[in-house]
């Protein structure tokens, strides 16, 4: 099953590679990984999307906690959470595509952030599955380029990951 794991770690060089190295060394799946400093510059926040049986997820959490640079780990799937991912899609905007792409972007509440003679760049935010749905809804021939940030997650209401 897919899990979203959030963690706070010391904002030190090499900390990211410790996490990435752990996943490859122990053959854990990694669907996406995002990392950036928090409001406290000494800390980075990472969101990892992974999948595995409950046993594997339990081991992943334990192994992450074991890393000396990791301060706190939270499995967002243990409670209610919000997941968001940003995607930029460059699509063909010629002939019939020009109208069609605008319409699709509106339906998915995307925004066209760059307009060129032959293409649009659409910005879309949402859960990973919404972004997947958007790509599926588009005519494959229209997609020129896509870039996704990977998911960021945060607990709902009182679920706060902070030290």
């Amino acid at each position: 099953m897919k899990h979203i794991i959030s963690l706070l770690m010391e904002n030190e060089s090499g900390a990211l590679s410790r996490v990435a190295g752990l996943f490859s060394a122990r053959a854990y799946n990694i669907e996406s990984l995002t990392v950036a400093p928090t409001e406290d510059a000494t800390l980075s926040r990472m969101t990892i999307v992974t999948s595995g049986s409950e046993d594997v997820i339990e081991q992943i959490i334990k192994q992450l906690n074991k890393l000396v640079d990791v301060v706190k780990v939270l499995d967002l799937n243990d409670g209610r959470y919000i997941e968001r991912e940003l995607m930029l899609v460059k699509v063909k905007a010629t002939g019939p595509f020009r109208e069609e792409m605008k319409r699709m972007s509106d339906i998915f509440r995307g925004r066209i952030i760059d307009v060129a003679d032959g293409s649009y760049t659409i910005e879309l935010t949402g859960s990973g599955s919404k972004l997947d749905a958007f790509l599926e809804a588009l005519d494959k021939a229209a997609i020129l380029e896509t870039v996704r940030t990977g998911a960021s997650g945060i607990g709902r209401g009182d679920r706060i990951l902070k030290i």
Partner: peptide
């Protein structure tokens, strides 16, 4: 002493 040693291979 190591939580990750627990329930790793055997529940």
């Amino acid at each position: 002493v190591d939580p990750s040693s627990i329930s790793k291979r055997v529940k």
